[in-house]
């Protein structure tokens, strides 16, 4: 299943692009991310803790940036081994468009699991992936713009 979403970010496209390529930003925004280190300009190593259905696992793996068309779009792809829990793979095509309010970020994301995760959690994977993708881009938007006013009100 493809998951799609859009976020309007009140920042210039160059700034959004830079953030999308900033390891510290990504580390802060990837849900459950414990470690993320650059190994080259386009590759990173990551440790991510996630719970899918009844299975909780620590995924160790690589994150790779592909199809880079700065500052307009790239594909971010990740693959993690969760030991006996199996593996998770995911990726998103991300594009940035200049709009009057700032930048429109659009994404199409995909996820796949294998091993024990598939045996126990396959029926939950689409929902989980959708949630995680939304969470990432939410985090990302908040990172750039700060929590928006309505949410602060709700929190207060």
């Amino acid at each position: 299943m493809d998951m799609t979403g859009e976020h309007i970010i009140a920042a210039p496209r160059e700034e959004v692009w830079a953030a999308l390529n900033d390891v510290d930003v990504l580390r802060a925004c990837i849900p459950g991310c414990e470690e993320l280190e650059k190994t080259s300009d386009t590759t990173m190593e990551a440790v991510v803790k996630q719970k899918i259905g009844p299975v909780k696992a620590t995924f160790k793996g690589a994150v790779e940036l592909e199809n880079i068309d700065a500052p307009k779009s790239y594909t971010i792809r990740g693959e993690g081994q969760g030991g006996v829990a199996g593996f998770a793979k995911g990726g998103a095509d991300v594009s940035l468009e200049e709009v009057p309010e700032g930048t429109k970020l659009s994404y199409t994301a995909k996820a796949q699991v294998g091993g024990k995760l598939a045996r126990l959690g396959s029926r939950l994977i689409d929902a989980t992936a959708k949630k995680l993708a939304a969470k990432f881009f939410d985090n990302f938007q908040k990172h750039l713009n700060g929590p928006d006013a309505s949410e602060e009100e709700a929190a207060g």
């Binding site: 699991v113 598939a118 045996r119 126990l120």
Partner: peptide
């Protein structure tokens, strides 16, 4: 299609 068993528990 990837050969993943997706009925691997009594919930499935």
């Amino acid at each position: 299609e990837d050969g993943q068993l997706i009925t691997g528990s009594y919930m499935d």
